[in-house]
Design a protein around this nucleic acid. Structure first.
Length: 458
RNA sequence: CGGAGUGUGGCUCAGCCUGGUAGAGCACCUCGUUCGGGACGAGGGGGUCGCAGGUUCAAAUCCUGCCACUCCGACCA
């Protein structure tokens, strides 16, 4: 099946093809490379997910790419559900565009500036507000074409002084960035709210509880902004919030994004309690909370949304005709999610001493078959049969058919964190059984191959 | 960008102080024995010791410069 959509871009659909380990490329490391400090960084290197090519610049190896694609697929589904429309902008931009907004000089050394063969000044995009505004103004003339929310998933480059923590704080990173366009503040506020709700769903589907916190707007600008933070002991920043955030409900998949009042109500709930990062922390307000509701923890920022009005539309003259016939600079917002950072963040949330414990929604494979005695005819036959039957039913699985002892197979399966393992060996088969192990809680049960098949068949 | 440190086979590291023919474990290849939680034996392949100069009869080792990477700090999706 051809799944190739776009060679150099990160837009490939997840591959559901089952795989034999003997034909796969999974360079597992038994020892931990010394540079890795953070547990997610260590595990990503050991599990053969990434390879560092320069400081803060990583290649995604096949296993890492599968996870990244799963994450992108969820991001995409929830963006689409909320009404955003995907396009794809380039990584390289012209400096002229950034001079229009005035940010070319403001952005500083974080921006990677390059020259082409004609000595024209170019840059590797750290974000795309200018470019999307340029695209918008080229085509959109009337308020009747609004609201509009355009997004893409593309590699960004920010030349961090000090990249660290693997893909958590890389210089090159994948980002989903969406940009909303509306005629007035009310429309822009609804666009902001829609993204807010989409983000709640997006992170929840990955098994994460992300808490929206009042945030600084930084060099993007604007005055309404939330960071979506997941709590993890290894988080980079200190955060403070009300304990109620741990149990607020996640909006259903059938939420109506056109229902302005309903969407606003969800946002109101999710902004009704104290929640702030250290930069915006109000110690007095936090101290006023009941003692059993106070939560201070470390957090990882996995998403950030901004409303910034006409900050770019005014200088770049992105205007539409309103119902009054006059010209109005368009009201904008931008909305980011970092999939490459999420890969690491999810590992921070789901791991143990043996390795990664992927939530099913983002797991590189759903199921692993471990042949515990390769070469034993009954064992081989049972494995092959399971592999064939499960493949035929579309189960994403990795079959460890290496001529290896059981120990390393157990260790590898635990390390790469596939949610379910079927252990097939002569001992069990003598009783007509295979063993099903759940990576998340370590539970095991014996069952017949037919029952195992039924368990995973859709 | 300030401070600290590290570059020796694919990985983890020893050797450097006190210069004298490059090592170990793991990984890899071959053969045999093994085989339900990272086996064992025998044999084998693989490194211009980050780069460039310098000192010396002789440099992984001493000196100078450069580069890369890591950690602490300021900065950040």
């Amino acid at each position: 099946m051809i799944r190739f959509l776009c060679g150099a871009c990160p837009i490939n659909k997840s591959s559901a093809e089952p795989m034999r380990l003997s034909r796969y490329f999974l360079p597992i490391l038994r020892e931990t490379p010394k540079e890795a400090e953070l547990v997610s960084h260590r595990l990503m290197l050991r599990a053969g997910m990434i390879r560092q090519e320069a400081a803060g610049i990583y290649a995604f190896l096949p296993l890492g790419l599968r996870v990244l694609n799963k994450i992108c697929a969820i991001v995409r589904e929830e963006q689409d559900r909320s009404g955003a429309i995907e396009l794809l902008m380039p990584t390289i931009q012209s400096a002229d565009l950034w001079r229009e907004s005035g940010r070319y000089d403001d952005y500083g050394k974080e921006m990677l500036r390059i020259k082409d063969r004609h000595e024209r000044e170019m840059l590797y995009g750290p974000t795309n507000e200018e470019m999307i505004t340029e695209i918008f103004r080229a085509y959109v003339r009337s308020y009747k074409d609004l609201p509009l929310n355009l997004y893409h998933l593309q590699w960004k480059f920010r030349d961090e002084v000090r990249p660290r923590f693997g893909t958590m704080r890389a210089r090159e990173f994948l980002m989903k960035d969406a940009y909303s366009f509306d005629l007035d503040y009310a429309g822009a506020r609804h666009a902001y709210n829609k993204m807010f709700v989409a983000y709640l769903r997006t992170f929840a589907r990955m098994g994460l509880r992300a808490i929206p916190m009042v945030a600084d707007t930084g060099p993007i600008g604007g005055n309404l902004s939330h960071e979506f933070i997941i709590l993890a002991s290894t988080g980079e920043s200190e955060v403070f919030c009300h304990r109620d955030y741990l149990k607020f409900p996640i909006p259903d998949a059938d939420v109506n994004f056109d229902d302005v009042a309903a969407i606003q109500a969800i946002v109101d709930t999710w902004t009704s309690r104290y929640a702030a990062t250290s930069e915006k922390h109000d110690a007095a307000a936090f101290e006023a909370l009941p003692a059993d509701k106070k939560m201070s923890a470390r957090g990882i920022e996995v998403g950030h949304i901004f409303y910034f009005g006409t900050k770019y539309s005014k200088p770049m003259r992105a205007v539409v005709a309103g119902p009054d016939g006059g010209e109005h600079p368009v009201q904008m917002g931008s909305y980011g999610i970092g999939p490459t950072r999420l890969v690491a963040a999810i590992i921070e949330a789901f791991h143990d001493d043996a390795g990664i414990k992927w939530p099913e929604a983002v797991a590189p494979f759903r199921l692993a078959i471990l042949n515990l005695k390769q070469g034993d005819s009954a064992t081989d036959a049972a494995c092959e049969s399971l592999y064939r039957e499960l493949s035929a039913r579309g189960v994403e699985l990795l079959y460890n058919d290496l001529d290896e002892r059981p120990g390393p197979k157990f260790a590898a399966a635990d390390l790469i964190g596939i949610p379910w393992q079927i252990l097939v060996g002569p001992k069990g088969l003598a009783e007509g059984k295979v063993e099903l192990k759940c990576r998340a809680d370590g539970s095991r049960e014996l069952l017949t191959p037919a029952d195992a098949l039924a368990r995973f068949a859709r």
